[in-house]
């Protein structure tokens, strides 16, 4: 692999780095790319923020069964033995 990597590769390396799936050489190339690429530095921070938010998504949900749906659910459950 070339010493200079593209933004496509760098953004993929950023995700692979979260899973500790980069070789020493790949991590070095990623660091070098990030040193001069403002957009990929932003991508890295934003990707990590999205990871944290996605993990908590259901805690912020307000979804609920309607009364009708709940009755239907109860009826289905009582019919299934």
């Amino acid at each position: 692999m070339k010493w200079i990597i593209s933004c496509r590769d760098a953004s993929k390396f950023i995700l692979q780095d979260e899973e500790k799936k980069l070789t020493v050489g790949e991590r070095r190339r990623l660091r070098f790319h990030l040193a001069f690429c403002y957009m990929c530095r932003l991508f890295s921070k934003q990707a990590k923020l999205i990871t944290r938010c996605a993990h908590d998504a259901h805690e912020h949900s307000t979804a609920a069964f309607s009364e009708d749906e709940k009755q239907q659910l109860l009826q289905n459950l009582n019919n299934s033995h």
């Binding site: 259901h58 949900s61 307000t62 979804a63 609920a64 069964f65 709940k70 659910l73």
Partner: peptide
């Protein structure tokens, strides 16, 4: 049921 729905959706 609501808790599980919120998780699944």
């Amino acid at each position: 049921s609501d808790m599980l729905l919120r998780y699944a959706l």
